[in-house]
């Protein structure tokens, strides 16, 4: 077969090989099992948070003393507590509070942390030293103590608790933002921009910030479950919101007292709290991997 040894027409080959096997950050996130599970889980939870209380005919405050501590059943899907209140409704009303406080606190952490960290990184040297030492000192104060003091002074209203939660959280965000900015500052493409004579403002807007957004989003996604948990913990100790408000911490606290005879009162809030925290952490993990720039040839 003579024409086997004829020269190859390479044009067709070259076109096929054009495909790239690199993915963008979003594609990486979507291909992560954990991330998608977390996202789906979170969507379900959010759905119930928004619409859950309307699915029943009860409100979270309806007291019905003839219906106390009923097992989960057809009328009360999650059972009732010792005042006859429907736990399903209370759980999802509690979700609203916990999520609101948690996300709110994480958001404040974000704003304060990003501002503080950026200023520290961009001014550099002396300013950076002073700012970081100050935050180090603040970080050394026991957080729970600080929160308790804050609540004692400012009361335990919704916003007061939200602010209390941010007292220590912002420092973590500030450190992460600062460290990322310092790292990006040293990268070659920033140096290249300096060589071109780019203004500082332009470098910050076009180079530093877009490359730091990834880690900021990831960190926020982790701070939310942390804040939610802390709020629950505070409420559980009786330092957070007070009954008849229905945050998860309060429900869990009430549930513990009744654990022996009416376990569902603890089990449901505990499971939902755990699932929520898991969902956020799973999304955070997937985001962290998706934004990770370690995409080089191996082998």
């Amino acid at each position: 077969m003579n024409d086997l040894y004829d020269p190859l027409d390479k044009k067709q080959l070259l076109d096929v090989i054009e495909e790239t096997h690199h993915k963008s950050a979003w594609q990486r996130f979507v291909s992560s099992q954990t991330g998608m599970i977390g996202l789906i889980l979170l969507s379900i939870l959010l759905f119930f948070t928004l619409f859950g209380p309307y699915l029943t005919s009860f409100t979270h405050l309806d007291i019905n003393l003839s219906n106390i501590n009923k097992r989960p059943g057809m009328t009360h899907w999650f059972g009732t507590d010792d005042l006859g209140r429907d736990l399903f409704t209370r759980l999802w009303m509690g979700a609203r509070i916990s999520l609101f406080v948690g996300i709110g606190a994480a958001f404040i952490d974000l704003v304060v942390g990003v501002l503080y960290g950026s200023l520290s990184a961009l001014f550099g040297r002396k300013v950076d030293e002073i700012m970081m030492r100050f935050s180090d000192v603040l970080y050394a104060v026991p957080h729970i103590l600080m929160m308790i003091l804050f609540i004692t002074v400012f009361g335990n209203g919704l916003f007061s608790i939200m602010l209390a939660l941010t007292l220590a959280g912002w420092i973590n965000m500030a450190r992460i933002v600062r460290s990322k900015l310092l790292e990006v500052k040293e990268r070659d493409f920033v140096q290249a921009a300096l060589v071109f004579g780019s203004s500082k403002r332009r470098i910050i807007l076009k180079h530093l910030i877009p490359n730091s957004v990834g880690i900021i989003i990831t960190t926020v996604t982790y701070s939310i479950p942390s804040a939610i948990f802390t709020e629950s913990f505070l409420s559980f100790l009786g330092l957070g919101l007070h009954p008849p408000a229905a945050s998860w911490g309060i429900l869990i606290s009430e549930g513990i007292d009744a654990l022996q005879y009416y376990p569902w009162r603890l089990v449901f809030p505990a499971i939902i709290l755990s699932l929520t925290i898991y969902a956020f952490n799973a999304i955070g993990d997937a985001l962290r991997d998706a934004f990770d720039p370690q995409r080089r040839h191996a082998l």
Partner: peptide
Amino acid sequence: QIIFQDPYSSLNPKLTIEEIIKEPLLI
């Protein structure tokens, strides 16, 4: 001008090639 050693850190990953090459012109 300068050409850098590490091709993986000399380009801003968030910009398109067009934006990267255009940048000096814009400045």
